[in-house]
Amino acid sequence: MSCEPWQCAEIAATKKANAITKPEVAVAMIKRAARPILVVGSNATERWMEGRQLIDYIIDFAKASKVPVVATAHMVGEFLKRGFEPAGFMSAMDIGNRLVDPTWQGLDGKGHPDLALFVGLPYYMEALILSGLKHFAPDLKTITLDNLYHPHATWSYPNGTLEEWASNLKVMTSKFEGGQ
């Protein structure tokens, strides 16, 4: 499948994200990962799909998949307001910077993540962080759960509508034990 970056000028060179053709692909990779984390940015409360905010979809997904959430910016407060406690919170730059450090032992101190999921950062910030990880964290796989194609991720959904996004997130949630 040919994918175009959401922001036209965000063009990668020789290594660009594989397209996630259906949510099951992403789910399989998440299930395969030993130590995934999910980084959630400030658009989590800015994006609405079918009357719900992105953050609500993310909470459903995180509860079902048990992937630990790292909230960036001030998003931790938004999670707490909704009765969900993220595994950690720090600035987007800090989590990026920790992920490129192979000696970092993760939020729980038990080992470096092998898969980082990203969702809901401003597109250009997410693109830059994914680029940093592509270049400097060779053993880390990255997936973006946004509905916008991110060429610097390892795997990305193609550009899609809000309806497709909502559907993808719901399907992903349903494929985990906790989401059925």
Partner: peptide, 22 residues
């Protein structure tokens, strides 16, 4: 902490060089 905005370098005629991931 580097977040390359571009994977390439095109500053001299040896290039463009692809500097992706090491």
């Amino acid at each position: 902490f580097y977040m390359p905005d571009c994977d390439l370098c095109c500053l001299c005629t040896y290039g463009k060089c692809d500097l992706t991931a090491g």
